[in-house]
């Protein structure tokens, strides 16, 4: 395990989130994994079609799968952390059992458990989530470490036929909290109302 290399990664997660979410429309549905990806997405701008998880660790990718299957004409992006995705390694396989082409899974990989004291995750060692995605058959699976690569990855995340997996190496940094609502019923209902219309709440 290398406990220091992520301190020097060039990409900063808050900027990456802004770049990915910039100019989004209602055809772009977002699920964020618990912890830092929630705060990153909220800092970039809260949106009713973002569903931020405050728990359910290991559930973000399959939640995105259920959503992608239900909404084949929308793009679904799961934006989560390396620790959360490591808990969901099996969901790489489950996603590829259905292989919805409208699903993108993006990991902000700082090689740390950010909410609990910045302990190293397995990706600080030899564990390579891109290789896992490829081994499970993802047609697009790539790593991003530089700004130019991020710019190339944006259209892939937003519209390339998938499932898409992108692992973005981001600097390990402790940032201020930017919290979305933590009322799960509200988050669910505002998402469904925007996507499915007010009658969906009746």
């Amino acid at each position: 395990m290398d406990h220091t290399r992520a301190d020097a990664y060039k990409l900063r997660r808050r900027e990456v989130a802004k770049t990915i979410l910039d100019g989004r429309d209602d055809d772009f549905l977002v699920v964020t994994g618990l912890g830092s990806p929630n705060w990153d997405a909220t800092a970039a701008g809260d949106h009713p079609l973002t569903f931020p998880l405050w728990g359910a660790m290991g559930g973000a990718a399959t939640l995105g799968l259920g959503l992608a299957l239900a909404q084949p004409d929308k793009r679904v992006m799961v934006m989560t952390g390396d620790g959360e995705m490591l808990m969901a390694m099996g969901s790489f396989a489950t996603i590829m059992a259905k292989a919805p082409d409208n699903l993108a899974v993006v990991v902000f990989d700082n090689e740390r458990y950010g909410e609990t004291g910045m302990q190293a995750t397995h990706t600080a060692g030899p564990v390579d989530l891109v290789a896992v995605a490829k081994a499970c058959g993802f047609p697009v699976a790539q790593q991003v470490v530089a700004e130019a690569e991020l710019q190339t990855a944006i259209p892939i995340i937003r519209e390339a036929p998938g499932p898409v997996f992108v692992d973005i190496k981001v600097r390990a940094e402790d940032l201020p909290f930017v919290l979305p609502s933590k009322d799960g019923v509200h988050l669910k209902n505002r998402f469904r109302e925007r996507l499915l219309g007010p009658e969906s709440l009746l």
Partner: peptide
């Protein structure tokens, strides 16, 4: 459990 939640968010 999470798949079912995603399905419901998407209206299924």
């Amino acid at each position: 459990v999470s798949l079912a939640a995603g399905a419901w968010l998407g209206g299924e």
